[in-house]
């Protein structure tokens, strides 16, 4: 298992050497993943809140669907977005295929159901506690959703982190719609896949270690911020 030791050496060389192409890949990864998670959060939080407390026909089916979509296979999403964005597809005129925007679109589709479904679960539990009090105070569904999202904010950071985890870990969708083009659409996971297929396992593993460290860093940062906020506001 000399590969492992070599991988760590490669990882350290990559980080310490501030390898220019590594930095480029890391920055693009963050840009794509964070944009996708931000958009998915804007879409998923209200959708989850609505599922939690608005009664409408087909609500149970919608909840089952949201839960099921959490497990969407990235390659399938990638393929669908590819078909939609390709020259012959309905959105072909925008010329988005093989751009970071296409990668963001695909990841929004992957992450939104995760954020919506987990938000629904958390806010539904909170609604059990709050419903009578908020109705008594005269809060309509819109106001109630706002109160639930605000009061559930600490638990919801974990939901957003789960979405970020999904976005930063998947390779299937971004590979298909991005194409892993050097300097254009190459991000951490697609670079790892490429190095594996080229047989440079040490470099691949080195990149993997960097990816994991970055993920731990993001989660630590969020946890620290959340605890600071919690201390202040309770």
């Amino acid at each position: 298992m000399g590969d492992i030791g070599e991988a760590f050496a490669a990882a350290i060389r990559l980080v310490v050497g501030l390898d220019r192409s590594l930095i480029e890949i890391v920055l693009l990864s963050f840009q794509v993943n964070l944009s996708a998670v931000a958009a998915a959060t804007v879409l998923g939080l209200p959708a989850g809140a609505a599922l939690a407390l608005v009664q409408f026909p087909g609500r149970r089916a919608a909840i089952v669907l949201a839960n099921a979509l959490m497990g969407l296979p990235p390659v399938v999403v990638g393929l669908i977005v590819y078909l939609l964005l390709s020259r012959a597809g309905p959105f072909g005129v925008f010329g988005l295929l093989f751009t970071p925007t296409a990668m963001i679109v695909a990841q929004v589709i992957l992450v939104t159901p995760i954020i919506a479904a987990l938000t629904r679960q958390i806010l539904e539990d909170l609604w059990q506690e709050y419903e009578e009090q908020l109705r008594s105070l005269g809060a309509g569904p819109g106001r109630a959703m706002g109160a639930l999202l605000w009061d559930g904010r600490y638990s919801l950071t974990t939901v957003v982190l789960a979405g970020f985890g999904r976005a930063s870990a998947e390779v299937g969708a971004v590979m298909i719609v991005g194409g892993n083009i050097d300097h254009v659409t190459r991000i951490m996971t697609t670079a790892i896949a490429l190095e594996v297929s080229k047989g440079d396992l040490a470099l691949a593993l080195g990149l993997g270690i960097v990816l994991i460290l970055l993920s731990v860093g993001v989660n630590t940062l969020v946890l620290v911020m959340r605890e600071a906020m919690q201390r202040e506001q309770g």
Binding site: E132, L137, W150, Q233
Partner: peptide, 29 residues
């Protein structure tokens, strides 16, 4: 309903300060 209020056996407190709990109720009205 706008002219009624209810207090429950187990007080339901929003996750904010004591004062903010009251301010929020007044805002809703």
């Amino acid at each position: 309903l706008r002219f009624q209020a209810m207090v429950f056996q187990r007080p339901v407190m929003l996750r904010r300060s004591a004062a903010a709990n009251i301010l929020y109720a007044l805002k809703l009205r």
